[in-house]
Amino acid sequence: LNLKQAKEEAIKELVDAGIAEKYIKLIANAKTVEGVWTLKDEILTFTV
């Protein structure tokens, strides 16, 4: 999975969960695949 694909998957998951745009922007700015997954997990843990 490359960075672009990771971001697309994570953003789709966050949108489906009804997460606010400000958190989705954090994913869009992530620099690594690991960073994308870590941010996604943290956002889902603390906002859902």
Rank of each mutant, 00 (worst) to 15 (best):
L44V: 06
N2I: 12
I27Y: 00
L44C: 04
E13T: 08
L39M: 08
D41I: 14
T38D: 07
E13W: 07
Y23V: 03
N29L: 13
L1A: 12
K40D: 00
V33S: 03
T32N: 04
V33C: 05
I27F: 04
V48W: 08
I24M: 05
I19E: 01
E8N: 05
N29R: 08
V48F: 12
A17I: 07
L1R: 09
K12H: 05
E13P: 01
I24H: 08
A30P: 02
L39A: 05
A30V: 08
I27D: 01
K25C: 06
K4A: 14
A20L: 07
A17L: 14
I11Q: 04
E34V: 07
V48S: 15
E42C: 08
E34I: 10
E13L: 12
L14P: 00
Q5I: 12
A20F: 05
A10R: 00
Y23Q: 06
E13N: 05
E9T: 11
N29Q: 12
Q5V: 08
T32E: 03
D16C: 07
K22C: 09
D16V: 09
Q5G: 06
Q5L: 09
V48A: 15
L26P: 03
L39W: 03
A30F: 01
E8F: 08
E8R: 10
E8I: 11
L39V: 07
W37H: 10
K4E: 15
A20H: 11
D41P: 01
I11V: 08
F46I: 12
W37V: 08
K40M: 13
A10V: 05
K40N: 02
L1N: 10
E13I: 13
V33Q: 04
E42H: 13
N29H: 11
L3W: 01
W37N: 13
I43W: 03
I43R: 00
D16W: 08
T32K: 02
L44G: 02
L1Y: 13
T45D: 09
A6D: 01
A30Y: 02
L3I: 06
A20W: 04
L39S: 03
E42Q: 14
E9L: 14
L44R: 03
I11D: 01
K40H: 07
I11K: 05
T47V: 15
A6V: 09
F46K: 10
I27P: 00
V15F: 08
L3P: 01
D16G: 10
G35A: 15
A28M: 14
A20C: 06
D41N: 13
E13F: 09
L14Q: 00
L3D: 01
L14G: 00
K4V: 10
T32F: 02
Y23A: 03
T45N: 15
K12A: 08
V48Q: 14
L26G: 03
A28F: 12
G35M: 15
E9S: 10
E8Y: 10
G35V: 09
V48D: 11
N29G: 11
F46T: 12
L44S: 03
I43M: 06
A17Y: 09
I43D: 00
L3R: 00
K40F: 14
I27H: 00
T32M: 02
I19H: 03
L3K: 01
T45Y: 12
T38E: 08
V33K: 04
E9V: 12
V15L: 14
A10W: 02
K12G: 05
V33F: 04
K25E: 11
K31D: 13
I24C: 04
V36A: 02
T38M: 11
I11F: 03
L26T: 04
N29I: 07
A6K: 03
A10I: 04
T38N: 13
L44W: 04
K22A: 10
T32S: 09
K40I: 06
T38Y: 12
L14A: 03
G18A: 04
T32Y: 02
L39Y: 04
A17K: 12
W37I: 11
K7R: 08
K12P: 00
T47R: 08
V48H: 12
Y23K: 02
K40P: 00
G18D: 04
K25I: 12
A28P: 02
T47G: 14
I11G: 02
E34N: 07
E34T: 08
I19T: 05
E13V: 10
T47H: 15
T47E: 10
I24Q: 07
G18I: 03
K7V: 08
K40E: 01
V33W: 04
I11M: 10
L3Q: 01
I24A: 03
V15E: 11
E21G: 07
G18R: 05
G18H: 05
K4S: 10
G18V: 02
V48N: 14
L14W: 00
A28S: 12
Y23H: 04
L3S: 01
K40S: 03
A10D: 00
W37Q: 13
T45W: 13
K22D: 09
E42A: 15
N2F: 11
I43F: 08
F46C: 13
L14Y: 01
D16H: 13
E9W: 12
K22G: 06
T45G: 15
I19Y: 07
A17W: 10
K4Q: 14
E34Q: 08
A17Q: 07
K22L: 08
A17F: 08
K40R: 15
V36K: 00
L1H: 11
Q5F: 09
G18P: 01
E21H: 09
I43E: 01
E42L: 15
E42T: 10
G35W: 08
V48L: 14
K22Q: 09
F46R: 10
E42P: 00
K31H: 10
A28C: 08
I43L: 11
E9G: 05
L3E: 00
V36T: 03
L14T: 01
K7L: 06
E9N: 10
A28N: 13
E9M: 15
A6R: 02
L3V: 06
K4G: 07
T38K: 15
K4M: 11
I11C: 05
E8M: 13
G35Q: 15
K31W: 07
A28W: 14
L39R: 03
T32P: 00
N2A: 14
E21F: 08
K25S: 12
L1T: 12
W37F: 10
N2H: 13
E34R: 06
V36S: 01
D16N: 13
E34A: 07
A28H: 15
D16P: 02
K22W: 09
N2P: 09
L39D: 00
I43Q: 01
F46Q: 13
Y23L: 07
E34M: 09
Y23E: 03
I19K: 03
V36W: 01
L3A: 02
E13H: 08
I19N: 01
I43S: 01
W37T: 09
D16S: 13
K31P: 08
T47N: 13
V36F: 01
L44E: 03
I19A: 11
W37Y: 11
T38S: 13
A28K: 11
K25A: 13
Y23R: 01
A6Y: 03
K4F: 08
